[in-house]
Design a protein around this nucleic acid. Structure first.
Lengths: 130, 130
DNA sequence: TACATCCTACGAAACTCTTCGTTGACAACT
DNA sequence: AGTTGTCAACGAAGAGTTTCGTAGGATGTA
């Protein structure tokens, strides 16, 4: 089988994924502690979300210890790419140029960031040549 | 008053906005005809959405003629910037570099597109200099 | 005038998302 | 054994989203 094709994470789910990407496999308690701070998420809320995300296949659960450990199934990069592709199709008619333009003008990218992006372009151009 | 700060459009609402941006002020019938094709949206569905969007302030309604004409309040650019900013915060921790990277690798941007983006960078760099 | 057509308005149904209260199991400590 | 604390599970409430059926008014035509 190729790849189960995960659903797009919702807003609250994405917040949880960000914690898991940052921390690696974590318990409900650990996730809650981070999100309690950041967005006031309660324990049972985080638990319920993680249970739903397990059903959806967004996270994997290790039930070895009493406090189950949850881990993101897809990497940050994969998920981010999915989200960008989605936004590109839904809001930009597929125009990467427009999206980059809005990203840069929204963010007021710094000089360093601009240089980094420029070197990204170099790589892509090299790849496109082949 | 400064600016009413519009809510982020939902998925179906965004589809409607895209039609309005493309066509300019349009009736429910005209919007439906486009979306019927693209996503099977029925007449009353489009009407209801436009009514809700009017309440939210996303569109303005001209009731002069019997068939009311709806017009997007925010420009495509403004809305796109809002959506990108949102995604940047929610999924990329504010890193425009990462977002651009994923956009380019997801899209497999063409040579022309890469050149266009490069010239965008030139402009931004010029602006950052001042 | 009668009939068909197009329009808005309303409301409800189905669904998703998010949150949280409650319950019962398990564990640790006294 | 009894108390306290932590845990997963479940269910339900409440909000938002999307869809559509139905009703009623206006317009156009036979």
């Amino acid at each position: 089988m190729p790849k189960p094709e995960l659903p797009r994470p919702t807003e609250a789910e994405l917040a949880i994924l960000r914690v898991l990407w940052e921390r690696g496999p974590s318990t409900v308690r650990e996730v809650t502690d981070v999100l309690q701070e950041a967005r006031g998420t309660g324990y049972t809320t985080a638990l319920k979300l993680l249970q739903i995300m397990t059903e959806k296949g967004l996270v994997q659960r290790d039930e070895t210890s009493r406090a189950h450990a949850y881990e993101a199934v897809a990497s940050a990069e994969t998920t981010q790419r999915q989200l960008v592709t989605d936004l590109l199709d839904r809001a930009f008619g597929g125009s990467a140029r427009q999206l980059v333009l809005q990203a840069l003008s929204a963010k007021r990218a710094s000089r360093d960031e601009l240089a980094e992006i420029r070197s990204l372009l170099d790589e892509f151009e090299k790849k496109a040549k082949s």
